[in-house]
Amino acid sequence: MHEVGIANSILEATRAEMARHSAARPLRITVRIGELAAVDPDSLQFCFAALTRGTELAALELKIEPCPRRNCCPACGAEFTVADYDFRCTQCGEERTEFVSGDQLELASLEMESYESSTA
């Protein structure tokens, strides 16, 4: 339900970045969304499309990189993906492992095409 706000924040960041690259056209923005981020990717795509339609960013593609929950084991140091709430270390079986990542809501990168070759 809050994906409009998230999409809007992504577009604001895109516009801020594009202001630094005036001779370029934005193609694709990549965001990382962790499974604990409480953001629905389909809903975000829908909102993103609705907010960009008819604007200078209409051709911008939103690429979502889903990030699973990752834990690490204090006993053996292994880092592993948590599946189905099973936090046991996949290497040594240790019961108590620690959260590493999985709540990301991050802008990773912006790909753009330079105008310079076509306008020269």
């Binding site: 802008l107 990773a108 990168s109 753009m112």
Partner: peptide, 14 residues
């Protein structure tokens, strides 16, 4: 085509 790393929180203003 070039790729600019952003590496920031989506909700960084909040």
């Amino acid at each position: 085509m070039n790729q600019v790393p952003l590496e920031q929180k989506v909700l960084k203003e909040n």
